[in-house]
Each structure stands twice: as C-alpha cells, then as structure tokens.
Design a protein around this nucleic acid. Structure first.
Length: 484
RNA sequence: GGCCCCAUCGUCUAGUGGUUAGGACAUCGGCCUCUCACGCCGGUAACACGAGUUCGAAUCUCGUUGGGGUCACCA
C-alpha cells in the first residue's frame, strides 16, 4: 500500500472553528493510523480576510489539541512553501501549462459583463442555474491589448459526467453541463480555491482529500482539472457538517465555536477530540475513547452520512469522563493556571491541592470547576450569601462552638476518627447530623455544597478547621434572628 | 428555482432482509446520603410518508415530503 498523505488546509480568517477541527482530526487520525504524513497548508489567497494573527491562532489551536503536522508552517517539508500566497509562481506555471494544452484561456470579460449576464439570466425566468459563458472561450483572436486586465479560465468539458467514489458518500455523479468555466487565476495572480487546491494537492502528493461536504460541489471541477493536467486523481472523503442545535449552520451565535475557547473553559484536548470524533463517526457502542484508541479504530467507512448537531451537554459529559480518567497529579497541573487566574498561587505539587483532588474529582467537570471547588483551602472563606443567612444563624451558634470543642480532642486529625468522634457526640446529645453538617459546611467552606465534611476537615487541618468553626459560631451568634 | 447530499428516540448513534429496534447524552422516578456530586436501579422516547420487490423491509428500488449545501474575480 502506498503512503498516505493527507492535509488540513484552513483559511486563516479568524478562530479555528470546531467544524474545521473535526475535519483536521479525521485526516490526522487517518495519517497516524497509517503511519502516513499529515500536512498543514494555509489557504490565504483571500487577502481581504486573511491575517497573520489568524494563522497563529490556527497553529496554536492545533498545537493545543495535539494535532501535530509533519509538513507545513514552522516544520517545513519537501513540498513547500505551505502558505498559498507564497506559491504564486507555481500556480502561474500550472496555469500556463493549461493554456498551452488548450485546457484554459484568457478571459477579458469584466465583472460588469458577468453581472449583466447573471441579471439577464435571472430575468429570463429559466429554471436552470446560472453559468457564465465567456465569449473568450472560443474566440481565436486576442483583444487589441492582450495585457488588458483578464483572468484565466478553465475550458471545462460541457458534455458527459464527472464522477468519483467518495470514501464516505459512495458514488457521486455530476453532469458536466451544470458546470461552468471556473476562474483559475485572478488578474493579480491569486488562484481561486479550486485551482490553488488542486495544484497544491497535486504538488504536495496528497493521496486523500478530506473536507466538509459543503465542498462536494467543488469536487467535479477539481477532478476535471486533475485530468486536464494529466495527473492522478486523489481519493475524496466528504464528511457531513457540524450544525447548530437548531439545525442551522453552526456559528458564534449558537456555541463556543473557536477551539481555544474550550481551553479557556477548562476542557481537555482529548475530550474535545473525543467529542468531535464521535460526532459523525462511531465504533459500536463505545462513547469514550483515548487518543490512541481513536488512532487505532478510526476508518472512513465508519463515518456517518448525516449532518450532526452540536450538543453542549454531551460535550461536557465527555469532558467530565476524560477529567476523571486523569491522575491526581495531572488534574493538579491542569488546575493551577485556573487558580492563578483568581490570584491563588499554588504549586502543581502542593500537598493540600493533591490531597483534595480525589474529593473534588467526582464533583467537577472542567478545570475551572476543580479550581472553584478547592479555592477555600488556599484563601479565607468567602460566604455564599444565602448559605450564610440560612446556616450561620443564632440557632446554630452553640452547636458550632461545641463541635469545635469536640474536634479539638481528636487525634489524629483524620476523617475516620473525626467522624467517629462527631457521631458519638451527636448520639450522646441526641442531635442529628443534618442539623450540624450544613452550618459546619458553611463555616468551613463558605458554601452549602462541598465534599464530605470530614474530608474537608482533614485536608484543612486542625488549626484552620477549629478557627473557621469558631469564627462561624461567632458570626452565627451575632446574626439577627429571622424566620424562614 | 437548478444541481448535489441527507433522513432510526429531543441529540449523537448501533443496526447491512427475520432483533421485545440496542447504547450514550439529555429528561423523569428511585436507591445511596452530612450538602452537592459520583455511582447504582428503573421509566418516557425513534425507523418521515407512500408505493413496490420479498414468505418476511428500519435495512433493497422508486416516488413524495422535509432538512442541509451550493450556484463568486470567498474558501
């Protein structure tokens, strides 16, 4: 079997869209599973919209996801350059070749002429789609000034059919009569998508072109171009798109659509990859995959044919599953930056942080949540207003004080002995855990929700536990009486 | 409108002629319990419609309807 060479060819016009990530992911998985080559190519021929800043965002996004490329910007390769705007001479040479072989021609039609033709077409009331028929296609004589502003058009075959067997969609047939003479090169030498794409995939020896099925319309003209150039046609895999929950095209309005936003929300790259892989691809009933499993199991014939809708809740769930697969050390490492964001500086190997992670792990889904769930171990208690009003009330002051006294005698200050001591005390005084736990929790954590009380106490340590409990008792004693 | 693609629970999907149509997320009950989670048990919920082929169709064929894409000197 020949070498697999696949590419991801984003146009840097902003953030890296998660739909684009999925396209990149499938190609990357295919390359990795076949020990092939994954190429990154920047399609920046739309100078209006492309910026260097966006290129950096794309590269940074890919790096964060761990989708490494074997050829492309920053890593180089034998088929460069890998930025389209730096390949203009290559496109010019191929365009020239096509003109010489009679497969392309110079078209001097102005935008105004084309617009007029389009308008006339619409007014004619015909049911067919608009195809601009350039008068220059069959005009043997060059214009008075051959250097006048012109584009280079493909002399597309107008009869017959163009077909291919898509890796995910199966056999597709397009009537050539529905295709027009597409523009290859603009007057400024910039290639249009179909031409730049073909020349690049050809010269970069790409063996399989994977992209969203919104590109299916481009495939027939591209195949014609390969044929006109006498080149081998690569395989094509058109995957269905990722839609918004309501079925519309996914955009910023519907969800966090740039991948880096997920990094900032405390998601794991592996979770993003898992969710996106599983959206449109399946392997039996399995839902959770490691990166390695994805590489081993991915195949195009398991890619579905129907468009998938983005589901934030399922995504979060997959993220939570991956978070729980991490070691405590890795969770600590991932959490520290988010603690720092809130001005809590903790080392990744901080013993208190490490000790508390097993307790917060089942209650958190992202690093942000882990950070929020452990912050009171590293700073003073900040009371939740409702919790404080309800549980640090005069009625509980005495119990809080007595609880502190009971705990003071416990040795060692660990969760089992603490629990035994407290249960014994409760029993003796015919008190219920329910009555004592919530006030203590608020006093200790500032919140009404937390890991088990005795776990919190152990991690907090004797000194802080007693101080916070007694402070809580004072606040409770001083609180106004209320009824609710 | 032309062309292209698509159609199983709300969502992601399994299913390749014979299944009580399975799983996951979500949702709703319950258990566990010091709160919140986790976990566990259980429920609701789908083959778009109509013909045809066949002993037998979610699976094959055709049509209808619906959704999406695309008709650029964007990608």
């Amino acid at each position: 079997m020949s070498e697999v060479r696949v590419r991801f060819a984003p146009s840097p016009t902003g953030y890296l869209h998660i739909g684009g990530v999925r396209t990149a992911l499938y190609s990357w998985l295919w390359a990795r599973r076949n020990q092939g080559t994954f190429i990154m190519r920047i399609e920046d021929t739309d100078r209006q919209r492309s910026t260097d800043e966006s290129i950096q965002v794309v590269l940074e996004s890919m790096r964060w996801l761990g989708l490494d490329w074997d050829e492309g910007p920053e890593v180089g390769g034998d088929h460069g350059p890998y930025v389209q705007s730096e390949r203009l001479d290559i496109y010019a040479a191929y365009a020239e070749k096509l003109i010489e072989s009679g497969h392309a021609y110079r078209c001097y039609a102005t935008k105004e002429e084309i617009a007029a033709a389009r308008e006339a077409h619409q007014k004619s009331g015909t049911k067919d789609g608009f195809r601009f028929q350039s008068p220059w296609r069959d005009r043997p004589e060059p214009p008075a000034d051959p250097n006048a502003r012109h584009v280079i058009r493909f002399r597309a075959p107008h009869e017959g059919v163009t077909s291919w067997v898509d890796e995910v969609k199966g056999k597709i047939e397009i009537l050539n009569s529905t295709l027009q003479d597409s523009i290859l090169l603009r007057p400024d030498g910039m290639p249009l998508y179909n031409f730049g794409c073909v020349v690049d995939d050809l010269t970069m020896e790409v063996t399989l072109v994977a992209r969203g099925d919104d590109h299916m319309i481009n495939t027939a003209p591209q195949i014609q171009l390969y044929e006109a150039l006498g080149a081998a046609v690569p395989k094509f895999a058109h995957m269905p798109m990722v839609l918004a929950p309501n079925g519309e095209k996914l955009s910023k309005r519907h969800a966090a659509v740039g991948v880096l936003e997920y990094r900032d929300m405390g998601y794991l790259p592996d979770a993003v990859i898992n969710y996106l892989a599983r959206l449109g691809w399946s392997h039996g009933d399995q839902e959770i995959f490691t990166r390695q499993e994805l590489i081993e199991k991915f195949s195009w014939d398991r890619v579905g044919t129907t468009a998938g809708r983005y589901d934030a809740k399922k995504f979060l769930h997959v993220q939570a599953e991956h978070l729980r697969m991490l070691s405590d050390e890795d969770i600590a490492r991932g959490t520290v930056p988010f603690l720092a964001r809130n001005d809590i500086d903790v080392a990744v190997d901080d013993p208190v942080l490490l000790k508390t992670i097993p307790y917060v792990k089942p209650r958190a889904e992202t690093f942000i949540e882990v950070a929020e769930a452990v912050d009171y171990f590293f700073r003073n208690v900040e009371f939740d207003a409702k919790g404080k009003r309800k549980f640090l009330a005069p009625a509980y002051a005495n119990n809080l004080r007595r609880l502190a006294d009971v705990l003071e005698a416990v040795e060692p200050f660990a969760k089992e002995p603490l629990e035994h001591a407290v249960k014994a005390w409760l029993e003796e005084n015919e008190l219920s855990m329910k009555l004592v736990a919530q006030p203590a929790r608020v006093a200790l954590t500032g919140r009404t929700k937390s890991p088990g009380l005795f776990e919190v106490m152990e991690v907090l340590g004797k000194e802080k536990t007693l101080t916070r409990l007694r402070t809580g008792a004072e606040i409770a004693a001083a609180a106004p009486m209320h009824s609710d």
